[in-house]
């Protein structure tokens, strides 16, 4: 039993049961073929395409009344779109929500994987704008589908290699392509490449692209390798600073401009992670020492 009730004007978790069944069938095939994009008949949601309609449909298809939902955008629980999506599910599914990563059974995210490791019993739902990793090399779906079928990923390696030849480094900083279980090249959604190593996880990872009508998945403990070359190994990078609020030296940081004289500070993008550290007494360069 949960304390909250969903708005009786809507079906539980908004979607009708037939739509949920269609999405659920796609999710199961996605888990059975890790990294392969399953087409699904994405519905028009009461929020714009490009704002998480794929993730929202996946979350709606997975939620049970006993779930505790966390929604983040850019790592933060309080960004406006995260607030808006959380509110949508509070109203239509009546589920409890939380900001604490460890307490959440379902986490919907845009652009980040939480810093705290996820584990069994947790589901991470990604909002995906362009699910096709080959799209910017070959815009035609008819062509990229053939390339996946034939495991023809030479073009992707050529692109990464040309990057190195021109710039001395691979110029992809986010949505960095990965190969899943040695078969499908997959777009991990626009997470910074810093997050790529966390794609190997004990949690179930589900990816929803509403406008592009695709669902894909990574089961727990699945091999996920970021594409690279022996002489140019993949490097998960971040700003070379510590968090100015909690002092963490290993978390992904947002850069904040603090004045018009070039002043800036760096803070954890994962707001729950940062707040928890501060509560434990960790301090950064710009922490208010008297904060009680």
């Amino acid at each position: 039993m949960t304390a909250m009730q969903h708005d009786p004007a809507y079906n539980f978790a908004y979607l009708d049961e037939q739509t949920k069944r269609m999405i659920r069938r796609a999710l199961l095939k996605a888990l059975a073929i890790p990294g392969y994009q399953v087409p699904f008949a994405s519905r028009e949601m009461p929020m714009p395409y490009g704002w998480g309609t794929g993730g929202v449909q996946v979350t709606a298809a997975c939620l049970t009344p006993g779930d505790r939902l966390k929604v983040i955008d850019q790592g933060a629980d309080d960004t406006t779109n995260a607030v808006s999506i959380r509110k949508f599910f509070e109203r239509t599914a009546g589920v409890e929500t939380t900001e604490h990563t460890a307490e959440a059974s379902v986490i919907q995210t845009r652009h980040r994987i939480p810093e705290a490791p996820l584990g069994e019993g947790q589901i991470l739902v990604y909002q995906v704008p362009i699910p096709e990793p080959l799209r910017f090399l070959e815009p035609r779906e008819t062509e990229s589908r053939k390339m996946h079928a034939l495991e023809e990923y030479g073009l992707m390696y050529v692109k990464l290699y040309e990057d190195i030849a021109h710039n001395g480094a691979i110029s992809t900083a986010y949505a960095y392509p990965v190969k899943v279980e040695g078969r499908y090249v997959m777009d991990p959604s626009p997470i910074p490449k810093f997050d790529n190593p966390k794609l190997e996880s004990g949690a179930i990872q589900l990816f929803g692209a509403g406008r592009e009508q695709r669902i894909y998945a990574i089961p727990p403990y699945t091999q996920v390798v970021s594409l690279d070359f022996e002489d140019h190994p993949f490097e998960p990078s971040k700003a070379d600073h510590d968090c100015d609020l909690c002092g963490c030296g290993t978390s992904y940081l947002d850069e904040v401009i603090t004045d018009d004289a070039g002043g800036r500070m760096f803070v954890c993008s994962d707001t729950d992670f940062c707040a928890a550290r501060q509560a434990e007494g960790h301090r950064g360069r710009l922490s208010a020492e008297d904060a009680a």
Partner: peptide, 24 residues
């Protein structure tokens, strides 16, 4: 509806991605 949604979504926060490009 697809076009306007995706077009307008670029006004949503992208500072995580932007930060990764900035570093690069």
């Amino acid at each position: 509806i697809q076009a306007t949604g995706f077009l307008e979504h670029i006004k949503l926060p992208h500072y995580v991605d932007f930060q990764s490009e900035l570093e690069l």
